Amino acid sequence: MREQTISALELAAGVALFLGAVLYAFHIQTMVDGGISAAGRMTQEQHAGVITVEMTNEIRKLTYKGSEVLFTLREVQAGGFDMYVDGVRFRSGSNQEELDLSVIDTNARYDAEYVRRIDGFVESIQFVKVR
């Protein structure tokens, strides 16, 4: 009878260790999933069509071509965020046909500054022409 009790205790301890390891792995997987979701939210404004972003050598800031700035206007039209180009505001949800696009020089390069809300979503993008 004593051996059966010891075997039952060993089995119970093994099952408890196994369940603890499973719960710990589930907790780690939940944390990793949360991190991936947060990274996805932070980069959702990036678009597959913008593939020519280049880095400058001296300050390692993102610069955009004027054509990429025009491409970003589609996101503004969809109501994603506000956009400023050299101080001119393009409001979220605005009609693209009514906008004065002459302020965007397609041959120029623009520095971009992303203004984010507390939850990580982009509130506005400010493009300033690099001189």
Rank of each mutant, 00 (worst) to 15 (best):
M31D: 04
A39D: 12
A78E: 13
L70G: 12
E58L: 05
M31N: 05
Q44A: 13
A78D: 13
V32Y: 01
I59F: 11
R41G: 09
L62K: 06
E75A: 14
Q96V: 08
G20Q: 00
V85L: 04
R91I: 03
R41W: 11
V76H: 04
R74G: 15
G87M: 07
V53R: 09
Q77M: 15
A21G: 00
S37A: 13
V50D: 12
N95G: 04
E68S: 09
R41C: 06
A21Q: 01
A78S: 15
A21T: 00
M42L: 15
V76F: 03
E58F: 10
D86N: 14
N95Q: 12
G49Y: 02
A25W: 01
G34H: 05
I28L: 00
S37P: 03
G20S: 00
M83F: 10
V22E: 00
G20M: 01
I28H: 01
D82I: 11
E68L: 03
A78W: 09
A48R: 08
L73R: 08
T63E: 11
F71C: 14
H27L: 02
G80K: 15
G40M: 12
R41I: 05
I51S: 13
G49A: 06
G66Q: 03
A39L: 11
K61W: 06
K65P: 07
N57F: 09
G34Q: 06
A48F: 08
I36W: 06
N57I: 11
Y64M: 06
R89G: 07
E58R: 13
Q77D: 11
G34E: 05
F90S: 01
R91W: 06
Y84D: 05
H27E: 02
T30S: 04
I51G: 14
L70A: 07
T52P: 02
V69F: 08
A78T: 09
E54I: 08
L73P: 07
E75D: 15
A38P: 10
E98Y: 09
M55D: 10
R60A: 13
D33Y: 02
G35N: 03
K61N: 06
S94Q: 03
S37W: 12
T43L: 14
I28A: 00
V88M: 03
N57Y: 07
E58W: 05
G87E: 05
L70W: 08
E54W: 04
G40W: 09
G35C: 02
T43N: 12
V88R: 03
M83T: 12
H27G: 02
G20N: 00
G87P: 12
E45P: 08
V32W: 02
R41V: 04
S92Q: 09
A25K: 01
S92K: 06
A21V: 00
E54Y: 11
S94K: 01
S92A: 14
Y84E: 05
S92T: 10
G40P: 06
E45K: 10
M42W: 12
Q44N: 10
K65W: 07
A38F: 13
F71G: 14
S37Q: 15
G40F: 11
G80Y: 14
G66K: 03
